Amino acid sequence: MASIDSTPILFSIPTPHLHSSNFWLPESPLFDPTTGLVHFPDIPSRLIYTFNPSSPSPATSICTPDYIGAIFLSQHPDVFLCAAQFGIATVNKTTGDLNYVAYYYPPGKRERMRANDAAVDCKGRIWVGVMTSFGLGPPQEEGAIMVFDPKTMGLKVVKEPVAVPNGIVFSGDNGWCYIADTRKGIIYRYSFDAEKGELGEEEEWVKIQEEKHGKGAPDGMAVDKEDNLWVAMFNGCRVLRLHGETGEVMGRVEIQGSRQVACPRFAGRSLVITTGALVHMDAKLREECEFAGDVFVVPDVGVEGREIYQARLG
């Protein structure tokens, strides 16, 4: 078994593109190819930021009333669709106003849960990981992977229970779905029926091992046009590039000055990487990591990301 030290370093990023002591958990960057802009929610801060990955200009932001786990392009130019704290919602791009269209859980459990990472498939369905919300102690095995179907406007549970669901992505041919369970350190793979929106049998595709993958656990993921996966290693200071069929490590992106690497996303041939500053999980994080919570950009990784789909309603 090859060790992480023998794996090629594809890029080493010394400084962030966006730096702020106000960042806590930037997540799930969204690239809009029509504008060239990237949008991302900072979940605990209830903010959605917008910036240009090709420009040094500062980010702008809007405030939302609830936590947002991930945002998506929609058919409506004035709103994003999003995986919000309590359910699937629209969010106004200018005002931040939220309008829920479906809830994950009924009242009672609803108040203790929140959205984490999420994705859109080729039919406009939203796949979302739901987990224990902030301020309630360590995440419990009470979360789920759910799918929102725009035809029925309803949510269906496809996997439960799970504590920290992450990194939901689909292969370029829409034949496979990959989901990371951060707490277990496992990336699962499922055959995917895009027409029906159904997952096949669960396969333990990659089990993270420190000698082979380095420190940390799998978090957010992205897929490139060669069908390889780019996997953020939370508490591991890196993003791994894994072969989309074998799961073998092809290379790594080293993030200097930030440990809680949360999510990579493609913006054309650029790779946008968000990181966390969750000091309740790591009391020395801000002291030891100068760029904790910051957003990094690799200008050109040599390959484009896979197609970005619009989320749909009705």
Rank of each mutant, 00 (worst) to 15 (best):
M1H: 09
S3P: 00
L10Y: 13
S12A: 14
N22T: 15
D32Y: 11
P44K: 03
S55I: 10
S57N: 12
P58H: 09
C63T: 09
L73V: 02
D78C: 10
F80T: 06
L81R: 06
L81A: 03
A84Y: 01
F86P: 10
F86R: 08
V91D: 05
T94K: 12
L98N: 02
V101C: 06
Y105M: 03
Y105D: 03
K109S: 04
R112I: 12
A115W: 00
N116H: 11
A119M: 11
V120D: 13
C122T: 14
K123A: 15
G124C: 02
R125I: 13
I126E: 10
W127R: 05
W127S: 04
G129W: 03
G129T: 05
S133W: 04
S133T: 15
F134C: 01
G137A: 05
G137H: 02
G137N: 02
P138W: 01
P139I: 01
P139R: 03
A144P: 05
I145P: 08
M146K: 08
V147A: 06
P150C: 04
K151H: 03
K151P: 03
G154N: 09
G154D: 13
V162C: 11
A163M: 03
P165L: 09
G167P: 14
F170D: 00
S171C: 14
W176K: 09
A180F: 13
T182Q: 14
K184A: 10
G185Y: 02
I187C: 01
I187L: 00
S191P: 07
K196W: 02
G197L: 05
E201P: 02
E202Y: 01
E204L: 06
V206K: 02
E210I: 13
H213W: 09
K215M: 15
G216A: 12
G216I: 04
M221A: 07
A222I: 07
V223Q: 05
E226S: 08
V231E: 10
A232W: 12
M233G: 05
L242Q: 11
H243D: 13
E248V: 08
I255T: 03
V261G: 01
V261S: 01
P264S: 09
P264I: 12
F266N: 01
G268T: 15
I273D: 04
T275K: 05
V279L: 04
M281E: 14
M281K: 10
R286S: 11
E290N: 14
A292N: 00
G293Q: 08
G293V: 01
D294R: 00
F296T: 13
P299M: 06
D300M: 01
E307W: 04
Q310S: 09
R312H: 07
R312A: 03
